[in-house]
Amino acid sequence: MTNFLTMMPKKCKQNINIVLRMFGRVRMIKYVLLSSVQFTRVLFVFGIAVAVWGFSGQHAIAQSGSKLVELCNSVAGDDATYLKDFYVELDAAGPEGKAPEQRFTIVLSKNTEYRFTVCNAEGSQGKAILQLYDVSKLYASTYNPQTGQTFQSFNFQCQKTGAYHLIVSFLDGKKGSAVVIASFVRTL
C-alpha cells in the first residue's frame, strides 16, 4: 500500500519528522501515514466543508444587505413605493481631510414626487449624508451644516425629466456604510 510519506520528497519527510519530534506528538504519524486513498478522502471532505462554509458565509452577507434595504424601505413609509436602493461603503477621510463620497445617477420624471431615505448600516462609524443634485445645482441634503439639523428622508417634487445625482458621504469624514432608498410617492 502506498502511503503518503513514501510519495514525499526526502527533504519534506525530514522536515515533518523534525516538527513531530519537536512537539513530541508521535501519534500524529498515524494521521500523516494515511494511504493516498484515505488522504484524498480527507482532502475531499475538507474541500466540501470549506466550500459549504464559504458559500453559506457569502449568502449570509448578501442577506444582511437585503435586510438593511428592507428595513430602510419600511423607514421610507407606507405612502412610498420602493424603486431602487443604493449601497454605500466608504473609508475614513485621508490626511488631506476631504470626506470620501459616492455618486449614483438616477433618472427622475416630471410631475412626480420622490422620496429619498438614507439608513446607516448597523455598526457604521459615520452618519451618512445624502445630497441630490442635477448637473450643477444642489436641490436637497439630509444635513444642514448651518444648523446641524439632520433628516433621514426628504421628498423631491420633480418638474424636469432627466438625470440627477445622489451623492453620499459620511459626517466628519468618518468611515461608514449605509443604504439609500429611492421611492415613488405620488404623481403631481
Binding site: K110, E113, L132, D134, K137, Y139, A140, F151, S153, F154, N155, F156, Q157, C158, Q159, K160, T161, G162
Partner: peptide
C-alpha cells in the same frame, strides 16, 4: 411635520 420637501422650480 419633520419631513423636508423640495419643490423644483426648474421645468422641462
Amino acid at each position: 411635520n419633520g419631513m423636508m420637501t423640495v419643490v423644483q422650480k426648474d421645468k422641462s
